Simulated assay, not measured.
Amino acid sequence: MARTYWGAGAAVVLAALFAVGATVATASGSGGGDGAAHTPSLYSPDAGFARDMSVHHQQAVEMSFVVRDRTQDEAVRSLAYDIANTQANQRGMMLGWLDLWGLPKVVADEPPMAWMSEESGGHAASGAPAAHGGHAAKPGALMPGMATKEELAHLGAAGGRDAEVLYLQLMTDHHKGGVAMAEGCARQCRTPVERDLAQGMVDAQQSELRLMADMLRERGAAPRG
């Protein structure tokens, strides 16, 4: 178990390294391996991923802070700390890229996950349900994997083992949605450092999904559906 937690903690360090490299590459206008300068456009996968994943990450950070105060279990608190730090760091990087690209952090007429429709040939219509990687957002959730207000309220009201199990279940759903989104950027984004970050998210969150499945089994529970 210690090795797994070391890996999760190391993701924080890797995220910091990505931040340095990404900032330098983007600020200089370097497109990476192809040698061509590239500034993403407003509705590009690069910009859409940065906006949507920033929102997705923010909820993971919030849930992690909630469970930290709802349990004394060191394993869950350690995992929550790693997730909160890693995703807050990555969120700051993505918002920083949007600033460097001169693009807004919110686009009023852009439905969540619209950028992923590029793979099927077109920009999603306003009001279309958010779906990616075969996952659809459940009613009341902004994007696939995200918790509803009611689920967040339940987490905030729970304590001890109940809070641990609900957090692990909600975060499992959250990671599954996040992995599908990051895989989309790894395929579609044109900014090399952003593709690298997206692939790093996939690898780290898949590892955490396995860890959380083990932690749920230890508590006599399982992921939800």
Rank of each mutant, 00 (worst) to 15 (best):
L216P: 04
M215T: 01
K138W: 05
G122N: 11
N89V: 13
E119G: 03
E194P: 00
Q188P: 04
G145V: 10
P129K: 13
Y167N: 04
L142C: 07
A137W: 12
A114I: 04
Q87G: 03
E151Q: 15
G159C: 04
E183W: 02
G178V: 00
G160A: 12
G200V: 00
L103Y: 04
G134A: 13
A124Q: 13
V165M: 09
L216M: 12
A114H: 07
V107H: 00
A180C: 03
A198M: 03
G127Y: 09
A125H: 07
D99I: 02
M116T: 15
G184A: 14
A131R: 13
G178N: 05
L103E: 10
Q199P: 01
K176V: 14
G177Q: 08
P192Q: 07
R195N: 03
W115G: 02
R190C: 01
L142Y: 12
D203K: 11
S126R: 04
L155F: 09
W101K: 01
A125L: 07
L216G: 04
M146Y: 08
G140I: 08
W115D: 05
L98R: 05
Q188H: 11
W97C: 02
G92V: 04
P192G: 10
L155S: 03
M146C: 10
E183H: 08
A114R: 06
L166F: 10
A114L: 05
L155E: 02
N89K: 14
G92Y: 06
P104N: 02
H154S: 15
A130Y: 10
A130T: 06
M94R: 03
V202Y: 03
M93H: 05
L166A: 07
G140H: 12
N85M: 15
E183K: 14
G121Y: 05
G159E: 15
Q205C: 05
E110L: 06
A153C: 12
S117K: 06
A147C: 12
M116Y: 10
A114Y: 00
A182Y: 03
A128E: 13
E208H: 09
V106W: 12
P112D: 07
V165R: 06
G178M: 02
V202S: 08
Q206L: 11
G122H: 02
Q206N: 15
M143E: 11
G133L: 12
I83S: 09
A88I: 07
K105H: 15
A163W: 02
H154E: 15
G177S: 12
A88C: 11
G133S: 11
R195Y: 00
E151A: 12
T172V: 11
M201P: 00
P104V: 00
A213H: 07
M181G: 06
T86E: 13
L170I: 08
S120G: 05
H174T: 07
G156I: 07
Q205A: 08
E118F: 05
L170D: 00
R195C: 02
